[in-house]
């Protein structure tokens, strides 16, 4: 039997399905008036510790929630218990050595367990990875990237995908600046080169530097109707 092949034009973006789910998540967040931060970083950049510092400061002013997607740096129960905030953990480890990012569907699966109506700011802690999370929108209002100065100056040029997608860059572990061979001006130049629009804040979870400024930035963002995009 002779079979011939036929060509069928598709022209569909591979990430369309994810983007549609992200949009659905976003509509849910908008309905409940929840402002959503997608927090991204490389592994070990210290975003969990920084997040804890921010939670300490924002507690009582804003109602917070956390969707935890980073199996490596999970805020453990003891560390989090003192905050008394809604927290849900999303499994990103379904095999193949672990998932490298959260996608919109994983976030959707976690939302059922969160009282969104009672949350002003939901922080989604993404998996520590400098490539993949940038590709997958999850319905967030903003992307905050945590970068540690221990990673060197050149990462913005090597991983522009993520640096370009960030709305704010927290330059973390800045207390180590005097001990490291890290050229801050050069780094900031590279950052500006790939993402001229993104502001940055110098932070340290250890000393608390910049945490206040980060929180003010968040409070300003939530004081207005959420920006689109």
């Amino acid at each position: 039997m002779h079979r011939t092949a036929v060509k069928k034009v598709v022209l569909e973006n591979v990430l369309d399905a994810n983007d549609a789910l992200a949009q659905a998540n976003r509509e849910k967040f908008d309905q409940s008036g929840t402002y959503v931060i997608n927090m991204m970083s490389s592994p070990g950049a210290g975003k969990t510790a920084l997040l804890e510092r921010a939670l300490e400061r924002l507690r009582g002013k804003l109602r917070l929630g956390v969707l935890e997607g980073d199996v490596q740096t999970t805020l453990d129960a003891d560390r989090l218990a003192r905050f008394h905030i809604p927290l849900v953990q999303v499994n990103t480890d379904p095999g193949f050595g672990g998932e490298c990012h959260l996608d919109a569907n994983m976030v959707r699966s976690g939302l059922a367990e969160l009282p969104l109506e009672d949350i002003d700011i939901l922080v989604i802690e993404n998996v520590g990875n400098l490539v993949c999370p940038a590709e997958f929108r999850v319905g967030e209002n903003v992307r905050v990237m945590v970068y540690s100065i221990t990673e060197g100056e050149e990462k913005p040029l090597k991983y522009p995908l993520m640096f370009r997608s960030a709305d704010l860059v927290l330059v973390n572990k800045i207390d180590l600046l005097e001990y490291l061979d890290f050229d801050l001006e050069q780094f900031l130049g590279y950052l500006k080169a790939v993402n001229p629009a993104a502001p940055h804040i110098l932070t340290s979870a250890r000393t608390g530097e910049g945490v206040e400024e980060f929180c003010s930035w968040l409070e300003r963002r939530t004081a207005y109707p959420p920006a689109s995009g």
Binding site: R3, A5, V6, K7, V10, E12, N13, V14
Partner: peptide, 11 residues
């Protein structure tokens, strides 16, 4: 780009 442009299907 990250696009499925076309498929080839068996008749």
């Amino acid at each position: 780009e990250l696009l499925v442009e076309f498929l080839e299907l068996e008749e």
